[in-house]
Each structure stands twice: as structure tokens, then as C-alpha cells.
Design a protein around this nucleic acid. Structure first.
Lengths: 209, 209
DNA sequence: GGGTGCGCTAAGCGCCCGCTCACCCTTGCC
DNA sequence: GGCAAGGGTGAGCGGGCGCTTAGCGCACCC
């Protein structure tokens, strides 16, 4: 691979796998537009315009507008699973791994807010087959977090009466960051990640710090 | 007032104030449609059809499709403020009031999921002036919750290093219920409300029941 | 019982949507 | 240089959108 897939800041460039170059530019333009206005309010003319192309160019690389959303959604969810899987399978106590999972997941939602917004909130705009595929990836996301919490309960580090419910709440908290996070706001993604990791450790009754 | 505004279950019928009857039927149809497909994917023909009317009937009661969304959003946000204000100003310790605020707010999001979904997720579909008005109501929502947490910190019941950040997280957790809650799922609104109240008390470091 | 006005409909206007098609450049191979 | 291939464009099709308008029917008042 000749181009770097990760920048120095740790922020992923997950679109490196998309070729050729024009297809990637269109995909990036679509992410921006979908995040700003939503899938249904975005026109193919707008996407093509942002990518510096004519409306027809879109259809050389993608069959439909929905295929664009599907591709974005799949790549984004794969990235989400990868982030959580890395944290879940790292070394260290469940407490440390849960904190790392939450803070890195939150950093991804805050830092790549445009992508995360599309990934998390435009699921219903997909057709049935595409949605079914993405729902499968979401189950993997849920399983990774639930796994860490279960381990912490077994080891006695956590005190969690309702593991599925708490898993849901933890993921919900992280995902909703994509809705409210503001790049020009007072908090950096790192700060929100640290705050949320602390709050989640409180939620599972873990000893902190 | 000849008709009841509240049902026995405590679930509000906040549309009682909308008159005449045809206007209310259209508003309810719009809530359903917006919640299901989103504002931009909903057509005025669909709304009118659900209300059993012709497309033109909509424009007798509302100037534009956006006015429908604006009205729904304002009524919904006013209800949200009312729920939190009631809990915040009740008697009892900050711990009790925070638990009541969270559980009732969650019950509203879960039970009236269609309304809550529109209220919480279609804000960006409003024009600038309408959005500005709604943002003001949101600030009131934030202030009510922050007020309870501040009181708990002052009284020594809570241990919260970052009050604005924790307020944000608590509200985020409650609001996101509207995204994931499923009426056919395993949990009732009451169960989710109780679970979330407990999780939030853990987040603020309060002694629990 | 005739007039008045309101709630509603049938029809349709103008616009812009997603998408297609015929054609045009550039590139690389012989 | 000839030529095939593929990325790109300009123009435009069919259709559905938000919204308007002309007119109808029914409840109500005198």
C-alpha cells in the first residue's frame, strides 16, 4: 500500500480503500452532504457538484444514490466494529478495556462527526437488503461491548444488574455524540472521550482512576 | 374543557389544544409520517392521505409543510420542558428529583416514540427562525436538568466533576431513547425509565435506593 | 327557502428530482 | 497514426414534488 491509511493524529482515513480517485471524491462529497442535510434532502446534483463533476459522472461509479449511502454505511460500521474489537481484545482489566473502548468510540463519533452522523442516523434510508446487512454489523458492535461488561461482572470489577440494558445505554450514549457534538464547541473529542469513559465506569460500578 | 387531556395511563394527548378537528387529524398524520420516514421523505399527499383528505386540504389549515413540522416541534418541546420542570420543582431531595426527571423524561421518549422522534431528530429540517425558537426551548430543557444536578452537588449528595458535561450526557442518554426504543421490544417504557434513572444516579455518584 | 361562507376537492402548474443517453476527450497499445 | 476502452459531459426524459386555484356542497341564519 503506497498511501498511508492513518494520519498522525490517529484519525482514520477509511476511504483509502475506495478506488478510483473519482469514486472516492464522490463518496466524500456524499458523506458531507448527507451529514449536513440528510440523505433525502441531498440531491445527486449537489453531490456531483461538491466533487467538481457533472451530475452524470455519479452514475459511472455508482448505480444509484442509495448505493452511495450503502457503501458509506458499510465502511463506517466496519470501522466502528474494528475500533471496539481492538479495545475489547487489548490486554488489561475489563475496567481499562471498557474505558478505552468508550473513549476511542466517542473520539471517532466526535472527530469524524460527518461520517458518524451518516452511519448512525441514515440507516432507515437504506432499502431492506442493505439495512439487513448493516444491522448484522450493529449486532457485532453490541456484542463487543457486552462482552467486556460481562467479563467485568464475572471478575467482580463491575456491579451491573442488567447487562443487556446497560450495554444498550453505553452504546446509546456514545452514538448520540454524533448528534450533538460541535466542532466549534468548547470540548475536544479527546475531552469528551475522557469524560464519557469516566461516566461509563460509574455506570457499571467500577473503581476509577 | 370537555375532553380529557390525559389518559389513565399518564400518557399525554398533547394535541388536544389543536383545533379544529381536521387540523388535529392532519397534525397526527404528519407526526406518524415524519417519524416513520423522516420529514424530507414524507410527501404532503401522504400526510393528507393518512388523515383521509385530499392533498389540498392541508393548505387550508397550514401554510406550508414546514409549518406542520414547526407546530409539532414546538408543542413537543413545550411538553418536554413541562415534564422536566415538574420533576425539578417537586418536593424531595435532588436524588429523588433527578431520578423522577430522568424516568419521566425517558417514559415520554419511549411511550410517545413517534412524537419524540420528530421532536428530537427533525430540528435541522426547520428554517432558521423556527429553529431558533426551538433552540430556546432546548436551552430551558438543559437548564432544568443542570439545576437539579447543581443542587445535588451543593448539598453534597452528588459527586460531579463536570456539571455541564454530565448534564449533556444525561440528556443525551434520555433523548437517544427515541432512536432505539421499539414498542415490540422486550422492555416497557416504565422499565427503561427505572433502569435509566438508576444509571444516571450512578453517573452523578448519588446513593441509590 | 334562499343567501352566505367555510371546509373541502379535482385538476393541474411549474419545478426539480433521480437517472439515461448520445457523444467527446484522453490514454495506452500496436 | 489508428483505434479501442473507459472516464467524463450536456441535454433532457419521465415523473413526483409542494403548492394553487376554481368551484362544489352542506350547515347555518334570517
Amino acid at each position: 500500500m503506497s498511501t498511508a491509511e492513518e494520519t498522525a493524529g490517529g484519525e482514520a482515513q477509511p476511504w483509502g480503500e475506495v478506488t478510483p480517485d473519482a469514486a472516492r471524491r464522490l463518496l466524500l462529497a456524499a458523506v458531507e452532504a448527507f451529514a449536513e442535510r440528510g440523505y433525502h434532502a441531498t440531491t445527486t446534483r449537489d453531490i456531483a457538484g461538491r466533487a467538481g463533476m457533472s451530475p452524470a459522472a455519479l452514475y459511472i461509479h455508482y448505480k444509484t444514490k442509495e448505493e452511495l449511502l450503502h457503501r458509506i454505511s458499510r465502511i463506517g460500521h466496519e470501522k466502528a466494529v474494528e475500533i471496539l474489537r481492538t479495545a475489547a481484545r487489548a490486554e488489561g482489566s475489563p475496567t481499562r478495556r471498557l474505558a478505552e473502548a468508550v473513549s476511542s468510540f466517542v473520539r471517532w463519533h466526535a472527530g469524524g462527526r460527518t461520517t458518524a452522523r451518516v452511519v448512525q442516523y441514515e440507516l432507515d434510508s437504506l432499502g431492506p437488503e442493505a439495512r439487513a446487512e448493516i444491522v448484522g454489523l450493529r449486532r457485532q458492535v453490541d456484542a463487543e461491548v457486552r462482552g467486556i461488561i460481562e467479563e467485568g461482572v464475572r471478575s467482580g470489577e463491575f456491579d451491573v444488574p442488567d447487562v443487556p440494558g446497560t450495554t444498550l445505554a453505553v452504546l446509546s450514549l456514545c452514538i448520540d455524540v454524533a448528534r450533538w457534538f460541535n466542532v466549534d464547541g468548547p470540548r475536544t473529542p479527546e475531552e469528551v472521550g475522557a469524560l464519557y469513559a469516566d461516566l461509563v465506569l460509574r455506570m457499571v460500578g467500577a473503581a476509577r482512576g
